[in-house]
Design a protein around this nucleic acid. Sequence first.
DNA 1: CGATATATGGACCAATCGGTCTTGAAAGGA
DNA 2: TCCTTTCAAGACCGATTGGTCCATATATCG
Lengths: 204, 204
Amino acid sequence: MSRQTTMQAPRGRPRSFDIDAAVERAMNVFWSRGYHATALPDLLRATKLSRGSLYAAFGDKHTLFLRALDRYIADALTRMDDELDPRRDPVDGLRAYLAGYVERACGAHGRRGCLLVATAMELAGQDPEVARRFASFFRTMEARVADAFSRAETAGKLAAGVEPSSAARILICFLWGLRVVAKTAPARTTSQATADALLDRFLK
Amino acid sequence: MSRQTTMQAPRGRPRSFDIDAAVERAMNVFWSRGYHATALPDLLRATKLSRGSLYAAFGDKHTLFLRALDRYIADALTRMDDELDPRRDPVDGLRAYLAGYVERACGAHGRRGCLLVATAMELAGQDPEVARRFASFFRTMEARVADAFSRAETAGKLAAGVEPSSAARILICFLWGLRVVAKTAPARTTSQATADALLDRFLK
DNA sequence: CGATATATGGACCAATCGGTCTTGAAAGGA
DNA sequence: TCCTTTCAAGACCGATTGGTCCATATATCG
């Protein structure tokens, strides 16, 4: 049901740059520098667009930022869907999910931080569009992780007294916290061991 | 060994405003809005100082910010020293410490966020002064919490297989994460129950 | 070939940024 | 009283902000 089929081909010169690629480049700038610290020239340099083209394509800085944020969130959801896929073993899935966070919490990756956490801290208090997206992602993440724990429970792999939804909330706080701690670029082995130790508290 | 005793009284009109109070007011602005989003007029309004006085007293915006951040950190250290005081029961201390974070992670307090986390995400990557302070606070926090767990262990209150330093790292990540999740202003009861559930995983 | 649409690059805009400086009043000590 | 210092208020600075507009070139259509 693509619009291409019902719409005439446009009459003039067709768009010659890739919008998604531009959003991704913009995302990387916001990711490294934050919203307020990113100036228009930074975005123009990164997207290789002229001022006119950028404003024609995205309207304004804030809208472009929202699109970049949505892209970041979509990527995170994709990873989550893959790692916590119901068809996978839930414990393996949780291990893989944690490993991803550990990887992103070390060295240069860690120092760069997390666009979602940074945005939540910088803008969520003042910007309802951002707050909505953050809250929504948070709820989704909680639901998926809780589901994984739930499946682990029915598989008899949870330690005594562990409630899936509670364990999910704990794990999620821990993961957000990893993103914060990552700013000090801790050793991978340390983060990995810490994550393992937490998960082991929940498992048989 | 105060300098007052050796120095002459200054000759001119004495300073008529309270520097510490000004730092605290500035801290509150930075806390609510973040570094880049805080403009000079915001600081002037909050501190009730003139431009001239503010620059005479603090030099520039960045220096004032660092003083505000140091004030925030000092307050956090004071709370920590009180709650995790070695003369207290370590488990009571940890419970009190967690309760403080839970309190600050709900409703309006939560929405406001944490100046330290926000600063770490916004500036630590680019600003070595900020990175230093964050890393230092992080290490201190880890040491104090690990010490509390260690005392709990010698008191025979730790569950089997729990290592104090590992538990401390887990708890700290969890607490930083609480500060992030707080942006969605979750219900106090939920946060409290989650924190309790985590702690209970470590205790007999 | 026109007509249409999109691109670039840069001029241009008002507003605001962080920061300096001046002025004149006020408050202390000598 | 005079000297020194600090104060508030605001003019002023160059640089930069996000955003608009225009001239021109180019690509694809009927």
